[in-house]
């Protein structure tokens, strides 16, 4: 469904992505990990055209992202994205946040959008906070609203950019629970995360990146037990130590 072929990207002279290639099939759950600055988030943002790339091709459901003629808003509306810092719109209630794109992009009426939003809020377990503003919610609650907001577009795939990195330890599990449920329902997911427990539990494959390159890509069990590259082993030994 998502094909990434030989993608390279530069900021000036600095190469942030170097010939990255991978693919994600329908129903796949892929975890991307790696040290800070390895290009994980950038690769994710290239997939829905938030970041331009200079070389290579990315196709999503048959549509090439890099093509000038591509209707990017339409393509983006089909891929849900969840950000590290939630990025809920502060001047809108949780419910309005979820309704906005349904009404402005999908053209749903206010009643239909609200009904769908309430169902999603129920699914992520925060119906009672529907009419609160983001600043009145905890980090975990905000991130669950953000997930509901992304799901409201009935996406063909979901991308998560370090969804739990900005959360208090106690709130991480409430967000991961929602993501585990999603994965079990067969949602296609690309997740940038350092939550190795989550990766082990639901990921089909793990991709390890360093210095803009995809260093290693393997089935989940194989990744954790028989990583081939020295760099991967070093990374794993450090984060699995504790």
């Amino acid at each position: 469904m998502i094909e990434i072929e030989n993608v390279s990207k530069w900021y000036g002279d600095f190469r942030v992505l170097a010939e990255c290639s991978t693919s994600v099939a329908k129903g796949d759950v892929v975890v991307v990990c790696g040290p800070s600055g390895s290009g994980k988030s950038t690769l994710l943002k290239c997939v829905n055209g938030l970041e331009p790339f200079q070389e290579g091709t990315i196709t999503v459901d048959g549509v090439s992202v890099g093509d000038k003629g591509t209707n990017l808003p339409k393509l983006r509306s089909r891929i849900g994205m969840v950000f590290q810092n939630f990025e809920l719109f502060p001047h809108m209630t949780a419910l309005q946040n979820i309704c906005l794109s349904q009404m402005k992009v999908l053209g749903r009426g206010p009643d239909e959008a609200e009904e769908r939003s309430m169902k999603l809020l129920e699914r992520v377990g925060i119906t009672e906070h529907a009419h609160k503003h983001p600043a009145q919610l905890s980090g975990g609650q905000q991130q669950r609203v953000a997930i509901a907001r992304a799901l409201a577009m009935d996406p063909i795939a979901m991308m998560f950019d370090e969804p739990t990195s900005a959360l208090d330890p106690e709130m991480i599990s409430e967000v991961l629970d929602v993501m585990v449920d999603l994965a079990k329902e067969g949602m296609t997911m690309i997740v940038v995360t350092h939550e190795m427990g989550f990766a082990r539990k639901v990921a089909h494959r793990v991709v390890f990146m360093d210095e803009g390159r995809i260093v290693e890509e393997a089935q989940t069990e194989a990744f954790f037990t028989t990583a081939r590259h020295e760099r991967t082993q070093m990374f794993l030994s450090k984060i699995l130590e504790h």
Binding site: L50, P73, S77, F83, E87, F89, M153
Partner: peptide
Amino acid sequence: IPRGQTQAGLAMGLTQFQVYRHVLLPV
């Protein structure tokens, strides 16, 4: 306003105009 707000708006399929109208300007 943090760049992430614009990205979040664009990521859900809003156009640049809609991001200004519904996200950036009201705040």
